[in-house]
Amino acid sequence: MSIPRDFQISKSKRKMLIELVESEISPFYKGHRKGAANQRNVLLHAISLAYKAGKRKPFKGGFSVFQNSILQEEEKYLLMAIGISEIGLDALFPDKHNEIYKMAEEYANTGIDIVYNMVFKTGYGDPLLDFETAISEALEKT
């Protein structure tokens, strides 16, 4: 499978990503669980939420967040599901995999704003409630 070595997002989003894993009020706070999967979790949420909102945008000047080789099987299938839903069964061909990962990066790049707003721009409420509500809505609508 020909995939890019690193998963990248725009440099301008780096601060938001760090804040999402460093802040104790964030569900992605690194202290909640052991291991270093948090930044990846943020980006997977970003990809899915941006896909749901139908927003993706190419960017220049990215920085590497993690190596794609660390993605779990389930996470690769998620990218595949998005790929097939966007470009059809052609997404199954190895020469399209690079395009699918790029697409995921573009979704992540816009989606990180959505995640950030859900965590930090909800006033004084519990950010988790926003996620819970969004989860319930997503299940009801689809």
């Binding site: 569900p27 992605f28 909640h32 669980r33 979790n41 997977l44 949420h45 990809i47 899915s48 939420l49 896909y51 749901k52 389930e74 996470e75 998620l78 599901a81 998005i82 097939i84 839903s85 988790l128 996620f131 819970e132 969004a134 989860i135 997503a138 299940l139 689809t142």
Partner: peptide, 15 residues
């Protein structure tokens, strides 16, 4: 944990 682990798959359910 439940939200973080399942969120991406729920939000991409349409996909």
């Amino acid at each position: 944990e439940k939200i973080v682990d399942n969120g991406p798959y729920v939000f991409a359910r349409k996909a």
